[in-house]
């Protein structure tokens, strides 16, 4: 698993789970492309984000 540290690095995914000290999310929706509304904000203080994925136990046959 890779962790990105450099300023300007981005991550993209359908579901990103975050942990931080101070989330700042405004309540104004932003009109994005294809008429989907987006929200924008920032996370500050010991931020850790991960592109989340579903996991399951591997059953032995």
């Amino acid at each position: 698993m890779v962790t990105l540290f450099n300023k300007g690095d981005g991550i993209k995914g359908e579901k990103i789970t975050v942990q931080c000290r101070k989330p700042n999310f405004g309540k104004r929706p932003i009109s994005g492309t294809s008429r989907h509304k987006l929200q924008r904000g920032s996370l500050e203080g010991s931020v850790y984000c991960v592109i989340d994925k579903p996991i399951r136990s591997k059953k032995e046959n």
Binding site: T17, Q19, V50, D52, K53, P54, I55, R56
Partner: peptide, 14 residues
């Protein structure tokens, strides 16, 4: 925990 559920995300586990 994973034995109890079909699937879980990292965030759910945490």
């Amino acid at each position: 925990l994973l034995d109890k559920y079909d699937k879980l995300y990292y965030g759910d586990i945490a």
